Computed example of a mutant assay.
Amino acid sequence: MGVFQVDGEFVAADQAVLPVSDLAVLRGYGAFDFLRTYGGKPFHLDAHIRRLQNSLRLLEISCPWSIEDLRQRVEQTLARNDYPEANIRLLVTAGDSDDSITPGQKPRLLIMVTPVKTFPAAWYEDGVKIVTADVTRYIPGAKSIDYIRAILCLRHAHEAGAIESVYVDDRGRVLEATTSNIFAVIDGQLATPGEGILPGVTRDVLLDLAADVYRPAIRSISREEVYGAEEVFLTSSNKEVLPVRQVDDRPIGTGRPGPMTRALMDLFRRHTKTY
C-alpha cells in the first residue's frame, strides 16, 4: 500500500481523506499538477511546481509553500514509497469554508505517489485515434481540478473508439486535448498551438529538444490543418510522445507514425534516460 502526504501528515493511501467541508468536495475548487519519475528522479519537478503555483495564482487560491518546501515534501513522500517508477500528483484545495462557497485562509496540500502505469505498446507502434470536440476550458492556463468537460469529452471519445479528445474553439482553432498537448507536421513544419492552452511541461521539454533541428512553430492551427497534416502526435507526462494515426474520421498521413514523430519519440526517450 502506498503512502500519501495530506496536510503535512503521512498516511496510507487508503486512509487519505478530505473533510466534506473542503471546497474541493463542495465546489470542485482547487488546482493540481502531475508528473512522473525517471530512474526514480521526479522529471522537471521545479517546472511542475512553478506551473502549480501559477494555477493557484490564476484561481486566486493562496499558496503558502515555496518551491523549496514543495520540492522537499515531494521527495519525502517519494522516499516513503517503493515503486520502480512513480507518478506524483500535487493537489491544493481551497480548504474549508464558513458558508460553503467563500474560501478560507488555509488551503490544503495533498501529495499522492502511485506506480507508473504503461500504455499498450501498439499505441506507440501503430498510432492512436483521437477525436475533436467543440469545447474550451475555463481559465485554460490553470490546471484546475474541475474536469467535468474533460470527463464527458473522454467518454464520447471512448464511445467513438478513440483514446483522446481535442478541444476546438469557436474559431475552429485546435487547442489541446483533455490531458495532453497536440503537435502537427504541416507542410513539413512542426507546429503546436500556443494560445488558449495549458502549456505542458513535456510539451516544453520537447520544444527545447526539437528547437535546433526542427525549429517548431508555436502558432494557431485550424481543425482543417490537422486533418490535412502529414503527422500528428500528443505529449503529456504519462503518454510521453504518442503518435496519432487518425483524427475523427480522417487518417493522418499514411495512417502510420511518421518519420518526424518517430525521431522525436527517440529524442525524448534518450532525454529521459539521461535526465
Rank of each mutant, 00 (worst) to 15 (best):
M1E: 05
G2Q: 12
Q5M: 14
G8R: 00
F10H: 10
A12E: 14
D14Y: 09
A16I: 02
V17C: 12
V17E: 14
L18Y: 05
P19V: 01
G28T: 11
A31T: 08
F32V: 12
L35Y: 01
G40H: 09
L45N: 00
H48P: 02
H48W: 07
R50L: 13
R51H: 04
Q53Y: 11
Q53D: 07
R57V: 12
L58K: 10
S62D: 15
E68R: 14
E68H: 13
Q72D: 15
V74C: 11
E75A: 10
E75C: 13
L78A: 09
P84H: 13
L90I: 15
T93R: 07
D96I: 00
S97L: 07
S97W: 01
S97R: 07
P103E: 07
L110T: 02
L110M: 10
M112V: 05
M112L: 09
V116H: 05
K117V: 01
T118A: 15
Y124N: 03
V131E: 00
D134N: 09
T136G: 03
R137A: 01
R137V: 10
S144V: 13
I145Q: 06
A150M: 04
C153M: 04
G161I: 12
S165L: 09
V166S: 10
V168C: 05
D170K: 09
D170Q: 12
R171H: 11
L175G: 13
L175D: 14
T178F: 12
T179A: 15
S180D: 08
N181Q: 12
F183K: 01
I186S: 00
L190A: 05
A191P: 09
A191H: 06
E195S: 11
G196P: 08
P199W: 07
G200K: 00
V201C: 01
L209V: 11
A211T: 15
R215D: 15
P216M: 01
R219H: 01
R219C: 10
I221S: 04
I221Q: 06
S222A: 07
R223W: 00
E224V: 12
G228S: 04
A229N: 11
A229I: 14
E230Q: 12
E230R: 05
E231M: 00
E231V: 07
F233H: 00
L234E: 03
L242N: 01
L242H: 01
V244W: 04
V247H: 12
R250V: 03
I252P: 10
G253W: 05
T254R: 15
G258S: 03
R262A: 08
R262D: 08
D266N: 10
D266P: 02
F268M: 07
R270W: 01
K273T: 09
